[in-house]
């Protein structure tokens, strides 16, 4: 395997690892909350055994909290599964709207850490052919750099559109100018994803065309 192919594999692995780490962090938090809610139930049981009165409403609220966390965990695992299966086929039908929403969900923790709000702008259904894993990597890297550019309390929008047989994913709301090395990296991933990336600093937007 040549150096270029090795680097391509490593870029993909790094992205997979970055997303997996974020997912594992979220799941750890879900488990930690369920653990504490179960602990509270144990505490209440021990106190009841010692003659203290149990408030049924408190138990109902605790049960609802556990159910809420199970639902949250289920959503995280569903996203993880969709992301994991994105490597199944090198080229397949891609629902760009669905894929964009998935990338936004996968980057929720990053956005929270960087104090940036990412809003998906509802639009038309856009389908095309492509490598879903590499397209996700491109969108995620673009969003990451857009978050850095927008800065704390930044508000990014992301929109999917289609015109004249060209599908586009547009990230708006960027702030500071993207450095050349970030643009070069995005261009490199865009080539692998069969895409073209364009940065329009005067409009504060980043566009990926497929």
């Amino acid at each position: 395997m040549g150096a270029t192919a090795l680097q391509k594999d490593r870029d993909g692995l790094c992205f997979f690892g970055q997303i997996s780490a974020a997912i594992s962090h979220d799941l750890k938090n879900v488990l930690a909350i369920i653990n504490e809610d179960a602990g509270l139930l144990q505490d209440f049981s021990l106190m009841a055994a010692q003659g203290m009165e149990l408030d049924p409403q408190r138990l109902i609220k605790l049960a609802e909290k556990v159910q809420g966390q199970v639902k949250r965990g289920d959503g995280i695992i569903k996203n993880m599964n969709r992301f994991a299966h994105s490597v199944d086929l090198p080229v397949c039908d891609v629902d760009f709207r669905e894929l964009t929403e998935l990338v936004i969900s996968l980057l929720t923790r990053m956005a929270s850490r960087k104090c940036v709000t990412v809003t998906f702008k509802e639009g038309e259904q856009v389908h095309g052919k492509g490598d879903p894993f590499t397209i996700q990597m491109l969108m995620a890297k673009g969003l990451e750099y857009a978050m850095d550019s927008a800065g704390r309390d930044g508000e990014l929008g992301i929109e999917v559109s289609s015109a004249d047989s060209v599908n586009a994913v547009t990230i708006s709301g960027l702030g500071e100018t993207l450095p050349d090395e970030q643009l070069a990296e995005l261009e490199s991933i865009a080539v692998k994803a069969g895409s073209e990336s364009a940065y329009v600093p005067q409009d504060n937007i980043l566009i990926f065309k497929f």
Binding site: G39, L40, D43, M47, K65
Partner: peptide
């Protein structure tokens, strides 16, 4: 902790102790 459900439950359990 930014997870309010976690930190509130932990605080309550510590108060019991």
């Amino acid at each position: 902790d930014d997870e309010s459900e976690l930190v509130s439950a932990l605080a309550e359990r510590l108060s019991f102790r």
